[in-house]
Nucleic acid binder design. Structure first.
Lengths: 229, 229, 229, 229
DNA sequence: TATGAATGAGGGTTCATTCAT
DNA sequence: AATGAATGAACCCTCATTCAT
């Protein structure tokens, strides 16, 4: 279950009983099989929600019986855990990388926005799950998903730091609440997962640039007059 | 505003075992009782999610048995339906009112943002449900919640119209995608429901003004230099 | 579920859908229904063991669906809990009653033996479960059945006390280990449940008198010569 | 006595992952390996019950995977079969040996009691299983464990014979039911397995002598007065 | 308008067993 | 003689819903 068994080579796709369902070419090491299952599950979780997805559906998708899933995972929760953890690890790693080499605060923030939108496509399923089921998963007993909160806190710290730095450097308006600003940026990026579809009119790069423009310079054209009540 | 207590009639407050729950003064007309139940349910849906909330929990909260709920509602879906419908009707009504008397596009948009944030408190539960369970509800068979999509479309039309008008008037950058811009604004407002807590450091008015500032004029201070890669 | 609802009178056995199975006349109060179910379950537990008995079998026996059992009980464990608790409460109550009015130690012990055998018939199922499944139930997590151990300790104390008193009074051999002696007596009585069948050659009274004879005066006839190695 | 370790051959102690468990020296002939597995399983069966013990647990204990057990045994039942059969064969053999050379009935019975207690330690696991799971195993379809009943019958015959002989010889009370008496003796001995722990205050020899005293001469001191109701 | 007992479908999970490798 | 992936049946339990009272 957890030792890489072979591999390297053509692995001569073994003849395997087909079960009832599709089951696309699933040769490869044990951990590859596991990853494959996680991917299938993530897709379902994203489409229908964690709770509404049954382990039987996941198993069907993989062409095995529901009980067989438990050869690979302890529980349904373990699967979604793996989905989210993978995403969060990738995300925080990318943030850290950017921050090590970042120039001024605006550049850093710009890069971070790009990273955010950049995950939209490769991690679409995970982000969707996080958006929709975060509330539920966090409420589960046993602090099973406590790391979610921790990871989020770390990310928040990174963003807020840059915003504050930008204010100190005179690059960003001093009258803004850093934490609040971070939240708005974060939400704007992630919620896009709800309507963003790859292959549509705009790709995630365009999305990012669009948002960067609005974020830094606003909707308005040059003339800064007061409006509203 | 939400607890017309009696109504002047014989209603002879029925002796009732109290069950385990609070259940404040529950006399009154049938429709008031119904509204009360909807409110309790909305709170639970918001806190735990629609699926994770059982009809038994709703009934408990109301101090009755789960079967008794079915004297008021056809199904669990009917309840959430009422929750969402009420919210959407209020929201669209407010938008229409503003648009009838609005001045230039920027003023109109400003007001719309204020309306958005303004619903955060009174409709917190409904918005939360919409954020978290929209995906699931929409996927239910029978087009039970098709009106959600319709309402959303109407709202989108209103916003996009104002954005385009603003661009035409030269108030907003011409290089922005109106639909995309709308979505970002919308999301930023609604998702706030996830972390906004009444009584905290900032009230919804402050939130609105904060966002209006960033939205129109951006994060950056005056010097519009190019940044990023 | 837990309030006595009516009763007293002929209760006009309500017409009720028959489900799929037998279901003997089950009129009466809610708690009577519950008791009935417990009795059915106890019988099955005794016959096949707690683990080997499925909730479906219990429900079948009652003529309802397995899920319906959960209207009356929280879990399968709750049912066996009720089986054992009822027995233990009856048993300890009887012991206490005897001990309050007992004469010398031998009389007390005699009565206790009679009580023991006397429970064999009315509590046959419960005793059988206790004999066969004690080990398993005790090992369940959460100290769900800790009271079993407590009740057993109390009973042990009562017996040992009488044995010691008998020794002090010069009625019982002084060279016997009281605790050990108790255990042997206890086991001899309870295990009889394994082979005792009501209506057989001997009833429980005869069993008791038989055992009392051997217990106090031994197998041997008068001549107390030493034997064995 | 139970671990002829090698056997003089190349056996080239196979490199084997150690799993999570102990697994002392496991080289040796196939039948030794098998015996070892049976012993591990017996221990688990005794501790947790036959049904509650999973084949996975047995395999874990042996440091192999559950599927691998099926190279040694046809089924889980086969394992417990072996556990019980071994015990019963040893037991009846010992009884037979004693009976061939026995003197009077009292001596014979004394020796049989000693044998009984004498198996408590070496066959603790098997006896425990027999006590707790007999009921279940006997109920399994296919008469798989019919030999259990047969062996028990044979043992009963041996005991009852001696008791009757003792009565005929005038050594035992004539008013006792031989079969009933046998059962009580048997039960008293075997159930001791539930609380007997090697290394405790009393060893099995002391237990036996204690019981022999009570059995033949009773609890009471010399004065045979009538008691009870 | 409520109760309370029941339905019936389905949920996640367990587990002895099989079998290609 | 072992692995590891899978089976398939069954298990306990949940829950929206129904309905006679």
């Amino acid at each position: 279950m957890n030792q890489r068994k072979n591999s390297g080579g053509a692995t001569a796709a073994p003849v395997r009983r087909q079960g009832t369902a599709k089951r696309a070419a699933t040769a490869g090491s044990a951990s590859e099989r596991r990853d494959h299952l996680v991917k299938l599950a993530a897709e379902l979780f994203a489409r229908k929600g964690f709770q509404a997805t049954t382990v039987r559906q996941i198993a069907d998708e993989a062409g095995i019986l529901s009980g067989s899933l438990y050869h690979h995972f302890d529980s349904k929760e373990t699967i979604v855990d793996e989905v989210l953890r993978t995403f969060l690890e990738d995300l925080t790693a990318r943030y850290r990388a950017v921050l090590e080499t970042a120039g001024d605060a605006r550049t850093a923030l710009t890069e971070m926005v790009r990273i955010g939108f950049g995950t939209l496509e490769p991690h679409r399923a995970a982000i969707t799950v996080m958006q929709n089921d975060w509330n539920y998963l966090r409420s589960l007993p046993g602090d099973r998903f406590g790391y979610l909160v921790k990871a989020e806190d770390e990310v928040e710290r990174m963003w807020v730091e840059q915003i504050k730095r930008g204010q100190a450097e005179g690059l960003f308006r001093a009258d803004l609440d850093p934490k609040l600003t971070y939240r708005m940026i974060r939400d704007t990026i992630w919620v896009a997962v709800r309507w963003f579809r790859p292959g549509g009119r705009l790709n995630t790069t365009a999305l990012a640039e669009h948002y960067i423009t609005v974020l830094f310079d606003g909707l308005a054209t040059g003339d800064r007059t007061s409006h509203g009540a």
